[in-house]
Simulated assay, not measured.
Amino acid sequence: MQPAETPAPAPPGVPAAHPSAPARRRWCRPGRGKTGAVLAAVAAALLAVPRLVPNTPGRLGSLLETLLPWLGLAVPVLLCAGLLRRAPVAVMAALLPVLVWGIRFGGLFLTGTEDSGGLVVVQHNVSDENADPAGTAAALNRSGARIVALEELTGQALPVYARALAPRFPYHGASGTVGLWSAYPLTDVRPVDIRPHGIAEGWNRGLRATAHTPDGDLAVYVAHLPSIRLGATGLRSGPRDESAALLAAVIRDEPLERLLLLGDLNSTVDDRGLGPLRAHLDAPGSGVAFSWPASFPVARIDQVLARSVRVTGIRTLPATGSDHLPVVAYVDLGAAGAE
């Protein structure tokens, strides 16, 4: 056996190398982790100000805003990459999007949605392909709601919902493919024209009514904005954005101060396409309630927005025969503004 070689002594005046020096150099190599740090900074910036991404071409800004909470998934990727490369700079930088995500979305996930409001409402796109409208109506009857808004009502399904919901919701109005059921008397029920340019007459997806609640009159709007499409050229949301602007103009001129909008808006509240509506209406202060698609919800496109009343919480109900989940919201009719 050959004796192990002993490292030559360091020349006089030169400090001896420490055994862990190579490991330290690997952790502290100049330049390591800069790419990860830059990516973390970009993720944090997009979370904080998604409008940095323009909407042309392909309305990429709206696409980012629709899926904005999921941008947080970049954090574990950046953290793992930084740890595998032993790059402290990248690991520390990954904490920045964590902070921004927590500030922007943490309250929605951590705040409870207890029934702290005096009015319970349900918004549900029941799907025009729903094979069990009676079962869906039974689920809505069990929700505890006093007001229910439905979209994608077909001529065949509407009588089924009307019969099944009538005992709990004796007041009812419908316009085109949207409908409103209420335990409180409804007056001034009328269609709302939100038809974008180029869509033929007969397309009717808007309704307005006055609900006479024990706490006073409440304007209730039901709307189903046009669908968006994701293709090779990006997000096609022009008709939806135009319809949202038309609806916003009507809501702006609504004489009743207290107002609820329930509907499938085919958008999240962060999407700039809903900007005209958000200028007049407040979103819920708590609750996530991803509602679409029902099989694996990734976004809440079914909304309950308010003016001069407060939506104190929001959550989803179990799946029905629709590709959307029902959304239940708790509304404090005595409080103005959102949390």
Score class of each variant (00 low, 15 high):
P19C: 03
H124R: 03
T111M: 12
V126A: 11
Q156M: 08
L83E: 12
R32T: 12
A139E: 04
L64Y: 05
N55M: 05
A17V: 15
T56G: 13
R24N: 13
A43D: 08
A139S: 02
A87R: 04
R51M: 11
L108Y: 12
G117V: 08
P30R: 06
L153H: 01
G118C: 01
L78K: 10
L140M: 06
L63V: 07
A21Q: 15
L47R: 08
A131G: 06
S62N: 15
W101R: 06
G118E: 00
L96I: 06
R51G: 15
G144I: 10
R24H: 14
E152G: 00
L150C: 09
P57R: 09
R146K: 13
E114A: 11
V98T: 01
C28E: 13
G102V: 06
V53I: 06
A87G: 10
R104Q: 07
V38D: 03
L150D: 00
L47P: 00
A40S: 12
P69R: 05
L68I: 03
V49R: 02
V120M: 15
R26W: 09
A94F: 07
V77Y: 13
V98E: 01
R59G: 15
Q123Y: 09
V89C: 12
A43P: 03
L79R: 13
G33I: 07
A21K: 15
W70D: 12
A137Q: 04
V75F: 13
A139Q: 08
P88S: 08
P76L: 12
G36T: 11
L39Q: 09
A48H: 11
A48M: 01
N125Q: 10
A131W: 00
A45K: 04
R26D: 12
G117N: 10
P50C: 11
A48Q: 01
L119Q: 12
A138Y: 09
P22V: 05
V91G: 12
N125A: 09
R24M: 15
L140C: 05
W27A: 11
G112R: 01
V126L: 03
K34F: 15
A23N: 02
S116N: 13
S143W: 05
T35S: 08
A21V: 14
V49T: 02
L68K: 00
D115Y: 10
G144P: 02
L119T: 12
A90W: 00
A40K: 03
H18P: 13
N130K: 06
A23Q: 12
R86T: 05
T113C: 11
A48W: 05
V120F: 13
R86C: 07
S62V: 15
R142D: 14
L71F: 10
A37Y: 03
R59A: 14
P133Y: 07
A90C: 11
